[in-house]
Amino acid sequence: MKTPFKTLILSLSLIGFIACNANNKKPQEHLAEIVKTEKHPHPNKQFIKVALLLDTSNSMDGLIDQAKAQLWDIVNELSYAKYGQDKPNLQIALYEYGNDGLNGDEGYIRQVISFSNDLDDISKELFSLTTNGGNEYCGQVIQTSLNQLNWGNNPDDLKLIFIAGNEPFTQGKVNYKDAATNANEKDVTINTIFCGNYSQGISTNWKDGAKLTNGDYIAINHNQKTVHIASPYDDKILILNRQLNKTYIGYGSRGRDKVAEQAIQDRNASSYGYANAVKRSVSKSSHFYKNSSWDLVDAIENDEVVIEDLKEETLPKELKGKSETEIKAYVEAMKKERAIIQKQIQDLNVKRTKYISEQAKSKNNNSLESAMTKAIKEQAKKKKYTWN
C-alpha cells in the first residue's frame, strides 16, 4: 500500500518526466524546427490576387485573343512588385460569362479556374476559351466570383477584379451596386474594362461599376491586334528557355503530364508570335513560376517532399534505381543549373525591355495588358507596394 508521501513523490516525478520530454525533443527534431523557421521567416506572405472576368459572347473574339497574347506581359510586370523587402505571391482566377453555351440558370457564368499560382494551368485554360452567344450579366459574375473565390483576410493582400465586356453593366438579376458593396466588405477592388467607345462605356454604367470600389474604368479597342516588338536578345532567351525546361524533374502521378503541358504552353505562346514566346520564357524565369506539385526541385525546396520518403514508382526514369545520395546530388545539380539559367534570362530581359521601350516610345498602347498593369500599379501604391 502506497503512503500519501510516496504517491506525492511519484506524481511529481511523472509531471517532471512529461515536462522534460516536452521541452527536450530529439536534437534532430529541434534542428528541423529551427531550419524551417529560418527558411520561411514570413509565413503570412502577401498575395496579389487577380480575378479576370471575360465576356465570351460572339463579339469578344478580339478580347480573348488579347488575353491570350498578353498574359505573359501582365505576369512579367507583376513579378517586379515588392512589399517592403518581400516579393508577393501571385494568384490568378479566370471566369467566362455571356456565353450561350453555359448554364442559363447560373447566369451564363463559368469558373474556368479558381485562384491558382500554376501559370501553365492558367495558360491552358485561357487558351481553351471560345466565344458563343450571349447574355452578359456583369453584376452576377462579379458576385459569383466574390462568393466562390477564397479572397482571404490579410489586409496587406492586393485583391482585384478585372471585368471586361461591351454590354450595359446593368443587365441581369444581380444589381452591380449590391455586388460592389460586397466587394468593399471583402476589400476587393473592381476594375471595369469596356470594349468600345469611352463615352459609351460611361453611359452604360461601366465607369460607375468601378467607381463604387475606387477602381479604374478603362475603355480599350478589343479588336486591336497585339503588336509584339522583336529584340536582338530574343533568340538567346528562347535557347535558354529550352535549357530551362530540361531542369524540371517530373515526379508522382502528375509529373509526366505536367512536363508535357509545359511544352504545350510554350507552343501556345509561340502561336501568338515569336516575341510572345520570349515573354513566357521570361515569366518562367521569375519567382512566380513554381511547380512543387510535380517538379522535384521545387517540391524539395518548398519542403513538400522528402527524398527518403519517395517511392520508386513515383520517380522519373532518370532516377529509377538510384540511391538517395545520387538522387539528392541530381536534384541539387538541377537546382543550381536552373538558378543560373533564370538569372541569365532575367539579365537579358533587362536589355530587351530597354530596347523595346525605346522602340515603342511613339506608340499609343490601348490594350488589355496596358489597362490592367496601369490600374494594378496605381492601386498597389495605396497598399505600399513598390516596383523595382
Rank of each mutant, 00 (worst) to 15 (best):
T3M: 10
L8V: 12
L8A: 12
L8P: 14
L10G: 05
G16S: 00
I18H: 00
I18V: 12
L31E: 02
I34L: 13
V35G: 02
T37Y: 03
E38K: 13
H40N: 15
P41V: 02
Q46P: 13
Q46M: 06
F47Q: 03
V50M: 13
L53F: 10
L54R: 00
S59Y: 08
M60T: 05
L63G: 04
Q66P: 15
K68Q: 15
A69T: 00
Q70R: 03
W72V: 09
D73M: 08
V75I: 15
V75E: 04
Y80P: 01
K82S: 07
G84H: 05
G84M: 06
D86C: 09
N99P: 06
N99S: 14
N103L: 15
E106S: 14
G107Q: 13
Y108V: 04
I109G: 11
V112Y: 08
I113F: 05
S114Y: 06
N117M: 07
N117A: 09
D118P: 14
L119Q: 10
S128K: 12
N135G: 11
N135Q: 15
Y137G: 11
G139E: 06
G139P: 06
Q140V: 09
T144V: 12
Q148A: 14
L149Q: 00
N153F: 13
N154C: 05
F169K: 00
F169I: 05
T170E: 03
Y176R: 00
A180E: 08
N182F: 05
T189E: 10
T192E: 10
F194L: 04
G196D: 10
N197L: 13
S203E: 03
T204W: 02
T204I: 00
G209K: 01
K211P: 11
L212W: 03
L212Q: 09
A219D: 02
I220S: 02
H222V: 08
T226F: 12
V227G: 04
A230N: 12
S231Q: 04
P232L: 05
D235A: 03
I237S: 08
I237F: 11
N241D: 14
N245M: 11
N245H: 13
Y248T: 01
R256L: 07
K258I: 04
V259H: 00
E261N: 15
R267I: 13
A269N: 05
G273T: 07
A275K: 01
A277Q: 07
V278E: 07
S281A: 15
S285V: 12
S292I: 03
S292N: 04
D298V: 01
I300Y: 09
E304H: 06
V305N: 03
E308H: 05
K311R: 04
E313M: 06
T314P: 01
T314S: 15
T314E: 15
P316Q: 11
E318T: 08
S323F: 04
S323Y: 06
T325C: 05
T325N: 14
E326H: 11
K328V: 11
A333F: 09
K336A: 14
E337P: 00
I340Y: 10
I341E: 11
Q342L: 02
I345W: 10
Q346K: 15
E358A: 09
Q359A: 14
A360P: 07
K361Q: 14
K363Q: 15
N364A: 06
N365S: 04
N366T: 11
M372H: 01
T373C: 14
I376H: 14
E378T: 03
E378Y: 03
A380T: 02
K382E: 13
K382S: 15
